[in-house]
């Protein structure tokens, strides 16, 4: 374990998407959004500059968590909710690895919620892809912590009475240093998000809206249908004004503490009134405001990078301390270890 940083040297042989396929039969339901996520990861990975043998996929339990079996990297299919904890141990002890977590809304937001927020808090250098289909799929259709209130499912025949998490807001609140959202039906966008997450050092969280065509079909229809998408989706692009609409004439204006939709061609409005997205904004307030546009019937739903921030990671901190004390005291030996403290001789 000499090298404690990720090896990003030029790869000798150019790999392709196929090189990242394990060859196992993929067992998701035909038409599942997970296929697209797998495809985008396999397409992106040859270009992220990390050797295949240094990549590990860790997962929990659920449909999403079968993901590692289909990737020809190292993979660990863990137990329900604990993927961030397993991955944290792996990354802390072995910072030379690039560690990715595949998880779902039940796995990460419900049983694994505690591990998720603490992973973000520690700025553990993990890349977390959360497949959010707003339903429990593998257990056959109960409502999840991201299901909308009033959701009728097998376990809520008269509609759910509790409120959903907003995963982006939760990640921002837990101080994740890279927070993004993408859509299973927007391959190019998802590839871009994956590349950006790969390039980020620290906890990178991507919420991927993913259609479960068996138990929650059409949950994101408005956001993915070609007809409605331009009106309902807001693309966040760093340094660019927040414009959307079929005619690209609608913009998001910051009005006091409110975000409002304006038509930039109407009245005195102009493009200059539109909020310019700054994913590196040191103040998280605007990122929270963008997160809370989600599911607001008067506002489009943002996708893209909400926030990106650089700060030292957990494993960096741990290994810096170790290097510091090894340089100062020298590497410890067994003799030093045992014969320390108050010792005495019996002759």
């Amino acid at each position: 374990m000499e090298n404690k940083t990720i090896d990003t040297q030029e790869l000798q042989v150019k790999l392709t998407a196929k090189d990242f396929s394990s060859g196992q039969d993929v067992r998701w339901c035909p038409g599942c959004g997970d296929y697209s996520i797998l495809a985008q990861v396999q397409r992106t990975f040859p270009d992220i500059g990390i050797k295949k043998e240094n990549i590990v996929w860790v997962s929990g339990i659920g449909c999403s968590s079968r993901f590692p079996y289909y990737m020809d990297t190292f993979g660990f299919h863990g137990i329900h909710g604990r993927a961030p904890a397993i991955a944290s141990g792996l990354k802390s002890a072995h910072p030379e690895l690039s560690v990715w977590v595949a998880t779902g809304d039940g796995d990460l937001m419900s049983i694994g919620g505690n591990h998720f927020i603490h992973t973000c808090r520690k700025n553990m250098d993990l890349k977390i892809l959360m497949f959010n289909n707003r339903i429990y799929g593998l257990t056959k259709g109960q409502y999840s912590p991201t299901s909308e209130k009033g959701k009728v499912t097998k376990s809520t025949p008269f509609g759910s009475v509790d409120y959903p998490f907003n995963p982006v807001s939760l990640a921002l609140g837990a101080e994740a240093t890279f927070v993004a959202r993408s859509l299973d039906r927007d391959p190019k966008h998802m590839q871009e998000m994956i590349r950006k997450a790969a390039a980020h050092t620290g906890t990178a969280f991507i919420e991927i809206f993913q259609n479960c065509n068996i138990f929650n079909d059409g949950a994101f229809e408005l956001l993915t249908n070609k007809e409605t998408k331009p009106e309902y989706v807001l693309q966040l692009e760093h340094g660019k004004p927040l414009i959307f609409g079929v005619h690209r004439d609608k913009g998001i204006k910051l009005d006091g503490f409110e975000l409002k939709v304006i038509n930039i061609n109407e009245g005195d409005n102009s493009i200059n009134d539109v909020l310019v997205h700054d994913e590196e904004d040191s103040n998280p307030i605007r990122a929270f405001m963008l997160a809370h546009m989600t599911d607001n019937p008067d506002l489009p739903t943002p996708v893209g990078v909400f926030r990106r921030k650089l700060k030292p990671t957990y494993d960096e901190g741990v290994w810096n301390q170790i290097s510091h004390f090894q340089a100062k005291k020298g590497k410890g030996t067994l003799k030093d270890l045992l014969y320390s403290g108050n010792t005495w001789e019996v002759k």
Binding site: S88, H118, I322, K328, K331
Partner: peptide, 21 residues
Amino acid sequence: NYGVVTFQAEDEIAGMASAIG
């Protein structure tokens, strides 16, 4: 200086899960 990583986890489960990782 012995290279020990002590990971004070968020709970007992994470303590064990991190050790497995």
